[in-house]
Design a protein around this nucleic acid. Structure first.
Lengths: 147, 147
DNA sequence: AACATTCTTGGAATTATTACAAAGTTAGTA
DNA sequence: TACTAACTTTGTAATAATTCCAAGAATGTT
């Protein structure tokens, strides 16, 4: 049965800072801000959404910095890219229990969902599996109600 | 257990033509060529790969025509877009038994794999699921052997 | 054959992303 | 504190995939 994942707790800036530092990266203002948005907004934001949101607070922020930060965080294993919407990569906190994603084709919102059992454990003959992504597409409960 | 799907049979041009026609589309030379490449090459080609391949045979073919054809075929339910590699959509024959996809991060090849049973059937409270995509990433048997 | 519809074509426009080089910042060391 | 090296940010330019658009070509129907 596919259900919504329980909401994750928020991460304080000092926690995020520690995570970035432990990963061997400098916890710059920009990186913390980007990481915080990915980790604490449950929105699975795209690079552009992150940029738009953060320029409100940091007007001098460069788009390239957002991309740089995301790449660094992904390489460090702290953030994960979602390829659910081709040509518009979204980002999610990586250190989380396994879960799948549901994208609503009406409102575009992405939900964290449970992951069907039997998927992640699957071994394979000769294949070395690094990651598994499960994407559901359809209409979310809110949009289903609309006429 | 995750294994490679058995190879699908090839489709003749007249079969493809019928499928396109039944879908209410005109079976133009270009559409048949695009559809044939998606259905019969087991390569899960991207729009650019389709364009490169087909311009050998049809030098006047336009890139836009490839995109138009793919959109028409997707809308008709004959072809499915794979979002396995963000920013580079691949295409697969749609009328096939449910299966997942494995992409090798070394050679980029995409394999059709079995899909754990019970996934697509998964109902959900308030969510209306239209499609499920399962993407595995890792290293394929051939690339695993290389030093 | 005339006409309406559908399809193809090429070029321009958009959008997401990457490349690059210069300027700024930080950590470590003397 | 001053110095140095490594790392980061920034802005601009370049790519790459895709979409938009308008004109011409092909098709099906009467």
């Amino acid at each position: 049965m596919l259900t919504i994942m329980p909401e994750q707790r928020r991460f304080s800036d000092s926690e995020l800072t520690n995570m970035i530092h432990s990963a061997g990266l400098r916890p710059s203002i920009q990186r913390i801000a980007v990481f915080s948005l990915v980790a604490n907004s449950r929105k699975h934001p795209s690079a552009d959404e992150i940029f738009s949101e953060l320029t409100k607070t940091y007007p001098s922020l460069s788009r390239t910095t957002v991309y740089n930060s995301l790449h660094a965080l992904v390489d460090a294993g702290l953030v994960r890219g979602l390829e659910i919407e081709c040509g518009n990569r979204h980002y999610d906190l990586a250190p989380q229990p396994p879960h799948s994603h549901f994208i609503c084709r009406k409102c575009g919102k992405i939900f964290d969902m449970t992951i069907p059992s039997g998927i992640s454990a699957a071994a394979s003959p000769g294949f070395c599996v690094d990651s598994v992504d499960v994407y559901f597409k359809g209409v979310c409960p809110v949009c289903s109600k609309e006429v």
